[in-house]
Amino acid sequence: MTVLEVRDLYKGFGGVQAVAGISFGVAEGELLAMIGPNGAGKSTCFNMLNGQLRPDGGSVHLNGRDITGLPPRDVSRLGVGRTFQITATFGSMTVAENVQTTLIAHHRGLRGLWRPAAALHRDAAMALLERVGMAEQADRACGVLAYGDLKRVELAVALANDPMLLLMDEPTAGMAPGERVELMALTAEITRERNIAVLFTEHDMDVVFTHADRVIVLNRGKLIAEGTPEDVRANRRVRELYLGESAEAG
């Protein structure tokens, strides 16, 4: 079943068409990679899906529901989890509190003025941290974690609102090659077992070709190729515009 359905999306900035008519879909349990050169429109496209930007034209549907132009918090409440290129966590809270805050938000409990939040949803938070391998570090401050661990926390936070779609912006940026593979393997495992649709952008072609079920390629705001990793790797235009000669080496 199609979870995310993007139809004919347009966005321009001062005369430049950043995204010029893009359509695609992501199915349940599928990992779809979006690749392309810098300035191809990936970020713009991503930000229209998560609500940070309002499209000039076209529509975005989540499970058949029109979410075009909704602000990020509403998109989130409808079941979209996100991770960021540069991790975004709450630095003044512990790892567990980061997840707990997300759970409290998910259960609409943020208006509480008296009962300490530290006791709320603690078990559920621990279960999620267990799943991403961060349970031992649950009571450490997010600010002192190693980068790879921070990425795991972000994954747990993104899963905490029980999403049907996960949007991951360059999930492995800034990680060592070994950690990249581990993190994406974990992501793939969890999202498949929960039947979550995943859309991610990525510069590391190893990650893309190892973990993606399907790949779409953007260039100058348009979709220039779509298909399995093998198809895309073999596509001549993609090699010319993006992958370059060293594609074999990867």
């Binding site: 960021f84 003044s92 997300t102 938000a105 003025l113 008296w114």
Partner: peptide, 24 residues
């Protein structure tokens, strides 16, 4: 230390993340 305070602090620590988990 109540959820309200966590929501406020969440917005201060990372507005991007707070937005992404549905906090107004």
């Amino acid at each position: 230390f109540a959820p309200f305070g966590y929501a406020v602090r969440a917005g201060r620590d990372s507005r991007l993340r707070a937005d992404a988990i549905g906090i107004d």
